[in-house]
């Protein structure tokens, strides 16, 4: 009976021969052609160009103005390029412009800012990265509470804490000194940086951490030998955030320092807002450009890594 059910194998259909390679194809084939001046492209590039001009125009005005002499500025054509290029305003802004009693230009503020920024960035990132690592990988008791408190801290406006911090700094004898300001920047950078590092370390595969533990590595060995070498992108992000944030800071600088230790931003303000004498627009422009140069350079050097670091926190792998 079963034999009756056996069927003859269906004959194999013979596949048709492959078409000749060099056949002329009619109808759409290959990549779809794209028109360069399609409505879509015109719209996209038009918008981009418009926005770019909108943002670059003030910069252009600043650059050309800073390269003009005062007589030329008084003519009132702020958009016209300088007839006679002069670097005099830049030199004056850097070394001889007066703020209050000091007439040594922005150079003093520049070095103050360097001395504030470098240790602040170093300290805040070191501590925050260890915090983030401990929070992400070593789930100690109370870690959740600690983290919540820290995140809440990120949302409290700085102005609320200005005066209490003044008192604290006075009590520990750091008020008015560069190190006082370093301390303030380190503490205020902590919530956002810890959050950044915690999320980055949490995005690294947990099995790496487990493997290192099986290999006998402890808290510091895992941090230094395993985690740090994998974290260049997020460190670049943190450095950019901190350098620009601390360099551009005005509020803490003006509150917690004295004229000798004013950072560059405060000095810039004092130059630009001086009430007596002639308003030297070219010097003001040059001084502003000088102050903004440091964050700008940082962006240009590390822009690529910055984007990679931001994305690394968001996407796994």
């Amino acid at each position: 009976m079963a034999e009756q059910l056996l069927r003859a194998a269906p004959e194999l259909a013979v596949a048709s021969a492959m078409p000749a390679r060099a056949r002329a194809l009619s109808g759409p084939h290959g990549p779809r052609p794209r028109r360069r001046f399609s409505r879509r492209n015109v719209f996209i590039y038009g918008t981009l160009a418009l926005v770019a001009v909108y943002y670059l125009l003030p910069l252009y005005v600043m650059v050309v103005t800073s390269l003009k002499g005062m007589p030329e500025i008084r003519l009132g054509n702020i958009f016209s390029p300088p007839v006679e290029i002069t670097f005099e305003p830049w030199i004056k802004a850097w070394s001889t412009a007066c703020t209050g009693l000091n007439c040594d230009g922005l150079s003093r503020g520049f070095w103050n800012s360097v001395m504030i920024t470098v240790p602040s960035v170093f300290l805040s990132i070191s501590i925050a990265s260890i915090n983030g690592y401990a929070l992400a990988n070593w789930r100690f008791k109370g870690a959740e509470v600690f983290f919540t408190v820290l995140v809440v801290g990120a949302f409290i406006p700085y102005q609320v804490m200005l005066y209490p911090v003044v008192i604290v700094l006075r009590e520990i004898g750091l008020y008015g000194s560069l190190w006082g300001l370093v301390l303030v920047h380190t503490i205020f950078g902590m919530p956002i940086l810890t959050l950044l590092f915690r999320n980055y370390f949490a995005s690294l595969p947990e099995e790496l951490f487990k493997a290192a533990r099986v290999d006998g590595a402890g808290f510091w060995t895992i941090y230094l030998r395993i985690m740090l070498p994998m974290s260049l992108p997020i460190f670049v992000v943190a450095i950019i955030l901190q350098v620009t944030g601390i360099w551009n800071d005005f509020l803490f600088g003006v509150v917690y320092t004295k004229p000798d230790t004013y950072p560059m931003t405060v000095q810039l303000n004092n130059i630009v807002n001086a009430v007596q004498g002639v308003k030297e627009y070219n010097v003001n422009m040059a001084a502003t450009l000088l102050t903004g140069l440091v964050p700008l350079v940082i962006y240009f050097i590390s822009g690529k890594l910055f984007v990679r670091g931001i994305a690394a926190g968001a996407v796994k792998g």
Binding site: E207, L208, A211, A212, R213, V214, G216, A217, M230
Partner: peptide, 28 residues
């Protein structure tokens, strides 16, 4: 873990990406 006399192999391999194969083997 290191004192238990165990070795572990993970699903995602969990190799240390910045080290060579030799570095991975010798780390522990």
């Amino acid at each position: 873990p290191k004192d238990r006399g165990i070795g572990m192999v993970f699903q995602s391999y969990a190799l240390y990406p910045q080290m060579t194969v030799e570095g991975n083997l010798s780390f522990g």
